[in-house]
Computed example of a mutant assay.
Amino acid sequence: MTERDDLDLQIAEFVLGTLPADERDALRAQREQDAALDRRIAAWEERLAGMADDVAPVAPDPELFARIERLLDQGAPAAPQADADSSGQVVRLNRQLRRWRWSTAVASAAALVLVAVLMLQPEPAPSSFVAVFQHNDQQPAFLLTVDLEQRRLNIRPVTAQAQPDKSYQLWIKADELGPNPRSVGVLGQNLELDQGALSGYDPALLREATFGISLEPPGGSPTGQPTGPAIHGYLYPAGAEKN
C-alpha cells in the first residue's frame, strides 16, 4: 500500500468516525496547518455525505427540560423582599448586587442540573454500522452501512464502477449460517441493492458476520457461491472508536 493510499484510508475513517481518538485528534490538528490535507478531507466528507441519510436522528427525551425546570423550582429560594425603608444609591446598588448574585446562582444551578441529568441518561447502544471494502493496495471500492435495529442496508460505490458483462454480488458469512457464504443479493446497474435484503437475519448475527463482494457473471453466481476472489468488510459502529 502506498503512503497516499494509507492516508486516504485514514481520512475515510476520520470522516466516518471510526478512527481512534488519538489518531483523530492528530489528524484534526494537522488539518488546521495543512491546506492540501484539508482539501482532501473535505473531498472525502462530500463523497461520504450521503451516508448520513441512512442514520436516523436521535431526539432527546421530551421530558428532559421539564425535569430540569422542576428541579430548579424545587431548589429556588424565595426572592428577597424589598426594603420599604431603603432609599438612595447605595441601597439600589445593594439590590443590583443581590440580583446579580441570584441570577448567577440560578444559571450555575441550571448548568449543574443539566450536566447531572445528561450524565444519568443511559447511553444508547449503536444501531448504525459501517464496513469498508478494499482490495489489496487499492482505494476503498465500496462502503456498506447497516442499521441493525431496522435491519436495513445501504451500499455505495467509492471507486468501484460497473463492469461490462459482470455483476457485483454481496455475500454474508457467519458460523450460524454454516461453512459457506450466503448470497445477500446482486447489485444492480447503479451498484445498489434492496435496502431490505438483510431483513431475515438476526441483528446479533449481522454484528459479528463477515461481508464480501465478488465480481460474478451477469445476474450473479451460477453456483450459489463466489466464483472468484471477494473483497471483505467487517462492521464497525458508526461514530464510535474501534477497539
Rank of each mutant, 00 (worst) to 15 (best):
L16R: 10
Q33N: 00
E13V: 06
R39Q: 12
L71K: 11
V115F: 01
F133C: 04
A76T: 15
L19V: 07
Q74F: 06
R92S: 13
A49I: 13
W102L: 03
Q74K: 08
E63A: 10
R31G: 01
L112N: 01
L19S: 06
Q89V: 14
L9W: 06
Q10T: 12
L114P: 00
P62R: 05
R47L: 11
T104C: 02
Q138C: 09
L7Q: 04
R39I: 08
A107R: 14
D8A: 12
T18E: 10
D73S: 14
L64W: 11
M119Y: 00
R98F: 00
D38V: 01
L27Y: 11
A105C: 00
A109D: 05
A49H: 12
H135Y: 00
Q30F: 00
R47M: 12
A26C: 03
P126Q: 01
A12C: 09
R4T: 09
L71S: 10
P126S: 04
L27F: 09
A84M: 15
D54I: 06
F129H: 01
P62C: 12
S87Q: 14
Q89R: 14
E23D: 10
D8Q: 14
A12L: 10
A43L: 01
R28Y: 10
R101H: 05
P124H: 05
S127N: 05
R4Y: 04
D83Y: 02
A59H: 12
D25F: 06
E45A: 01
L48I: 05
N136D: 15
W100V: 07
P60A: 07
Q138H: 08
G75C: 05
I68Q: 02
V115C: 02
